[in-house]
Design a protein around this nucleic acid. Structure first.
Lengths: 336, 336
DNA sequence: AAAAGTACCGAAAAGGTTTTCGGCGAATCT
DNA sequence: AGATTCGCCGAAAACCTTTTCGGTACTTTT
């Protein structure tokens, strides 16, 4: 079998210098655009570097500079649909500079997290982003790490850390406000598991808003699981008990999807008789639904990008702390 | 505001050596488990390293060894649900060793891909995995790269490269075989856009299998988009034209989901009157459906893991080439 | 013409680790 | 006791780049 022919050795600065007939020092200066080097010389060096396709060794550079231009991103669960947009946002924000991202999936396991942490620290990352899979506080990585850390989505339980989370209270409040503004008054809330901070926060926002309008939730908040199945079941019972219902706020888009299915089969027209709102704005669910589902978007990509910027600031000495909440936004579609 | 107190300087091997009262050479040997060092001395070094929480600088080590213990993973689109399991599989397979993964999202942009490639090469990764978002061949990164490359999901158009892809022909064939084995004879096929190799491959497998049983597709393969909407529309026309239909193979789970919705509303019972199969085995769609959807799983996580292993082999001189197809598997649920 | 100034280049050190090889002291052998 | 072996340790080189600082050759000023 033919082994692919690869350049046996990689070109080094010394090779460039030799080819250009200068010293390595001059070659370095020429390549890095420093002055103190004659234009002709610079041109010669550049040509030489181009010719042997020289790529500076970031390791040697990092060793000297003490900065590697890399950050570690530790995520709790990669399959979750929350960590992914955050990851994309962060990757995008860093990508514009010259940072590279080390990705590690801890699979929700503290042992694995520690292992990855050591690996990242050993590789001398300039900073860390920790992405949680839930908005519930998680244990801090510790205060005496040699690099700054930013927690995204899942906040650190230590106030000295900087955490970025979506403002689910506001998201819930806005969704309630949105339905009220459309004249809905008999509003129910079907959500997921009660031990999720995300679920509780939204309940808080919703109830507060309704109360301020002199209303309250029909049947209280109904906790279950984050599934379509639960959305269907809960909705069936709800419309059976409350024929005057005219709005349902759902804890996520899957529950909302289940609600829509049940309503359709019961002959309740959406949105003329009743409005439905989801949460998360998971495209594939919102636009697959009939009618297309209005939902709340947590702006996770922006959250990821902001995490990247905050980390960048921290690396440059502008460290922050505490929990920073980012606004959610409503994406109106056809169910309201 | 209080700046978080961090260790001003990181402990170096020299510090360990000084603390243990030995030379750096001895300290290195002690920490790396080499012989030629007295047990007592080793213990002293280990204790010293522990005390000042020494972490070896992977940069310096990599600079010397020429191997960095890192691989680059370039993905076409991070939001696709195909690249993600592959990424997880690869990350998992590497994680067991002591490799770390650099993640880069090229956003389907060749310029950005080149940029990331340069960045990764500059950081002296030991190898690269390129993850496509479609199974259609993509341009090669080139033959004269200084490190080995493995293409996953989306194969390289250059036969000299090593590519790992799911065997969609077999997947399609198996799905047809599966329905035939359950006594279905009047089988239709609704799939996505015709310019996807994945769609064409499955058609090939399905038609070949049906032909070998003396059957053929009812109404041929119906191409459209990969959406629920299309699944609903196509199914409506299909059952209108072919009241004797008893099986539908769908190009993905969303189309299948749409088909199920239409069948339900038309009063066609699944699976007693008609069977439905999806593709991709996207959990959230298959188990959210009523009844739970039988689907074809491309084993993408295994594909990612294998990509990691193949890359590892290539790094160690065992380079392969050509396209390697991995089997899909059927996940039976309630719609068949 | 001598002094001062300018523009450019190169030697060398630094960064942290690993590995080779020489050396030193102690134990064993003759 | 002297010679040899053995076990253990340390000096130094190597990896590649950047930066500082001194030096050379040339131009300008007095």
């Amino acid at each position: 079998m033919p082994i692919a022919e690869r350049p046996a050795v990689r070109a080094t600065l010394r090779d460039v210098a030799r080819l250009a007939g200068v010293s390595v020092a001059t070659a370095s200066k020429a390549l890095n655009g420093r002055d103190q080097v004659h234009p002709d010389t610079r041109a010669r060096v550049l040509a030489a570097a181009e010719k042997i396709s020289f790529t500076p060794n970031a390791l040697a550079r990092g060793l000297l500079a003490g900065q590697t231009g890399t950050v570690g991103l530790i995520t709790g669960d990669l399959d979750g649909r929350f960590s992914l947009p955050i990851l994309m946002g962060a990757e995008d924000a860093f990508g514009k500079g010259k940072m590279s991202v080390f990705l590690c999936d801890a699979r929700g396991d503290a042992i694995r997290e520690q292992y990855h942490l050591d690996a990242l620290l050993g590789r001398r990352v300039d900073g860390l982003i920790v992405v949680g899979s839930r908005t519930d506080p998680r244990p801090s990585l510790g205060r005496n790490l040699p690099v700054p850390v930013v927690y995204a989505y899942g906040p650190s339980s230590d106030e000295a850390d900087l955490s970025l989370v979506p403002d689910n209270v506001q998201g819930g409040a806005d969704s309630a406000e949105f339905l009220l503004a459309r004249g809905r008054r008999r509003i129910a809330h079907i959500t997921g598991e009660a031990d999720y901070a995300a679920a509780q926060d939204r309940v808080t926002g919703i109830e507060r808003t309704l109360a301020s309008h002199g209303e309250s939730l029909v049947g209280g908040s109904r906790f279950g699981s984050w599934t379509e199945q639960w959305g269907r079941n809960a909705t069936a019972r709800l419309i059976d008990q409350h024929p005057d219902l005219d709005g349902i706020l759902c804890g996520n888009d899957q529950i909302a999807r289940g609600a829509l299915d049940t309503l359709r089969e019961a002959g309740w027209d959406v949105p003329s008789r009743i409005s439905v709102m989801g949460y998360d704005n998971w495209e594939v669910f919102t636009t697959g639904a009939r009618p297309h589902l209005t939902s709340v978007d947590m702006n996770l990509e922006a959250l990821g990008a902001l995490a990247a910027h905050r980390l960048f600031d921290a690396i440059n000495g502008q460290a922050g702390s505490g929990i920073e909440s980012l606004p959610c936004r409503i994406v109106p579609r056809e169910t309201t």
